[in-house]
Amino acid sequence: MFIINCPYCGERDQSEFSCGGEAHIERPKQPTELSDDQWAEYLFMRKNIKGIQFERWNHAHGCRKWFNVVRDTSNDKIHAVYKMGERPPLK
């Protein structure tokens, strides 16, 4: 349980949001040309990091907009929040 600073609405309780998992997984540009291994990699395989993770969140019970969060999964501390399409902060 923690507070997320929605870039559109400000600080709200985490229970207002839903998590979309690991961020910056690009949908393959030519899915039909992928091998089964590559498709599995895209669809199922996750870093599932213990530590600093880049992830997508949706303010489901608020503005309903998607954005990105940099969060430490070992202690749930949020290090940065940035909008979709923005460059992820290094570190």
Partner: peptide, 8 residues
Amino acid sequence: AYISYTQR
């Protein structure tokens, strides 16, 4: 509903 290793 999110990844976490906090055991809380």
